[in-house]
Amino acid sequence: IILEFDFFHIQPFVGCYRDHLKIYDGSTSHSPILKGPACGKMAPAVISSQHKLLITMFSDGQKHTRGFSAKYRFVKCGKMLTASPTRIIGRVEHNGSVNPLEVSNCFWLFQAHRGHKVILEITTYNFQKSEKCTDAYLEISDASVAPPISRGIFCGTIPIPVIEGNALLIEFSHPGSKKQPGLRVDYKCIAGPTERKGEGSIQWSQYNALTLVLSMLLISPWTM
């Protein structure tokens, strides 16, 4: 499950101790935390490792901010990777199908540890030319911004510049080919800013009221 945000503004506080959102990789609050506690304006986009994802929202009702609106997608191929001071450098490699009737469609979300940013160096090979990059393409978007901002769509032999950000989503889509298209992504973590200014849906708005705890469970029809 890919979760992205159309807008995200939750009352900021040190350590997000007051109003905050948490996203769990599973169906209960005992599942591993994918993101959170999250507050402020940086969107906490995630990709779950299974077909269930739990979102919880806590508010003390002291201040009014816009809240959040999120969109989710069920995908068959996706993974989230976190670059942190203890895991500074990494690499992802993926090969598409050799079957011309099979389309490879995969997603990777590269997250930076708080206080850092991630840098991606991407190499594609055997990418076919596609008019307006519609049939075979690699799209990169900044998912830490709400709504996400496209950083570019690439196909054929179009060179891909070095990309940096706090949360970068890559989509690889390519029909099968005997030459087997693929990509390699080298990523690393460096110190950087922690805040940016800047098919279903979820909406929630904070308001001056009693303490509120909101939970939402998303379940994919597919198993990953």
Rank of each mutant, 00 (worst) to 15 (best):
I23P: 04
R73H: 15
F68C: 03
I219E: 07
N105V: 06
R18L: 11
S130H: 04
G115L: 08
A45L: 10
W108H: 10
L34Q: 02
K197T: 04
P100E: 05
Q180N: 10
D25R: 07
Q50E: 03
L218D: 01
Y72V: 10
E131R: 13
T123P: 04
G90A: 01
H94S: 04
K22N: 15
L168C: 13
F8W: 11
G36R: 08
N166I: 13
K129R: 12
L168G: 13
V118Y: 12
G165P: 13
S69L: 03
F58D: 09
T157W: 07
K132Q: 11
I2Y: 12
T123A: 08
G61V: 00
P44F: 09
E171Y: 06
R66W: 03
G115I: 09
D142S: 09
D6R: 12
V14G: 14
L3D: 12
Y207L: 11
K188Y: 00
L168H: 13
K179I: 01
L183N: 04
S49G: 05
A167E: 10
A191W: 02
I23M: 00
I1V: 15
A136L: 05
H51K: 03
N126L: 03
G115A: 09
F7R: 15
L34K: 00
A70W: 08
E93G: 01
T28E: 00
P85A: 10
S150I: 07
G26D: 05
C189A: 04
S150Q: 09
S48D: 02
D6L: 15
V145G: 02
S215P: 05
D142I: 00
I160C: 10
W108G: 02
F74N: 09
E195V: 15
G200T: 06
I190Q: 15
T194Q: 08
I158Y: 05
P181V: 13
F13S: 15
E139M: 03
Q203K: 06
N166F: 08
M224F: 14
K188W: 01
S220M: 05
L169S: 12
F127T: 11
C77R: 11
Y72P: 03
T211C: 10
Q203T: 05
S205M: 03
H94L: 05
S29C: 05
M57D: 04
I202P: 01
A38R: 13
F13N: 14
V98P: 02
D135V: 09
E164F: 12
Q206P: 01
A167D: 12
I122R: 01
S144L: 06
S215L: 05
I219N: 04
L53P: 00
E195M: 04
I190C: 06
H30P: 00
N95K: 09
T134I: 06
L54E: 01
S29M: 14
M216H: 14
M224V: 04
P181Q: 10
C106R: 05
L168S: 13
E102M: 10
P147C: 09
G165T: 08
